[in-house]
Write a protein that binds this DNA or RNA. Structure first.
Length: 220
DNA sequence: AAACGACCCAACCGCTGTTTA
DNA sequence: ATAAACAGCGGTTGGGTCGTT
């Protein structure tokens, strides 16, 4: 399967979006809804690739996007979630209504990683993506290290619904390095006392006890 | 006022995962 | 079972902006 040709190869527009392009895209999506990114540019009268349209919509034009500074509460939440999930920006963004994965990623790279390093806190390194990953019956299971002992279940970037009771000790400063946390996560115990087979499933377990864990109520 | 460096962030690239024929 | 098409994710880039000298 080949990667689809990029915009430049097809003679499409690249670079910053114009107000007119924004208007065309917004208008089309308002009338027809999201999706079909491949055919959308043509139907909307845009000389852009679908990928570019999707990105523009998701990161900038969506009506529910929250603009402005990241609040201290949001910052705290990002730090906690990053400690838990690593560079899973879409998952983290799913926890911050109105914020995009790109925005959070940028904020992390430009502010938080430096800030935490200054404070002498461990910043979790990016988990290298597997090369030549072969789909399996449960292909979203991603190993995060070579010995396959620790795994994270990576759901689609939908809103997370689950409990983090399991992480309650990790919120204290200085405690719980990432490896500690992952070890804890792989201990196969959920908040309800049930045991699982070593996979952390944020979709299933991030919501319950959210406010206790994160210290404030989510505004959904 | 000009030059320079640091920072920010929108956009792109390359890859993986999912769906469908 | 397989491959192609499509969608989405995370890392990186580069142009614009801001602050400092």
């Amino acid at each position: 399967m080949g990667r689809s040709p990029c915009c430049s190869k097809l003679g499409l527009h690249r670079g910053p979006w114009t107000a007119r392009e924004d208007a065309l895209l917004t208008s089309y999506i308002q009338n027809h809804g999201e999706g079909n990114w491949r055919s959308l540019p043509k139907l909307a009268g845009l000389l852009r690739c679908g990928k570019s349209c999707r990105l523009r919509w998701m990161n900038y034009l969506r009506p529910d996007i929250k603009r402005g500074n990241i609040s201290p509460e949001e910052e705290d939440l990002i730090i906690r979630l990053h400690r838990l999930l690593g560079n899973r920006w879409s998952l983290i963004a799913g926890r911050l209504p109105g914020r995009t994965d790109n925005e959070i990623k940028n904020y992390w790279n430009s502010h938080l990683s430096k800030k935490l390093k200054k404070q002498g806190l461990v910043v979790r390194e990016a988990i290298p993506r597997k090369k030549h990953a072969k789909s399996s019956s449960n292909s979203r299971m991603q190993s995060i290290n070579s010995n396959d002992e620790i795994k994270i279940y990576a759901p689609k970037p939908t809103r997370l619904t689950a409990s983090i009771h399991v992480m309650e000790n990790s919120t204290e400063e200085g405690k719980g390095s990432s490896s500690d946390e992952m070890e804890y996560l792989s201990a196969n115990k959920w908040s309800d006392g049930s045991e699982e087979n070593g996979f952390f499933d944020p979709d299933q377990n991030l919501d319950l006890g959210f406010d206790q864990f994160f210290g404030f109520q989510q505004d959904v």
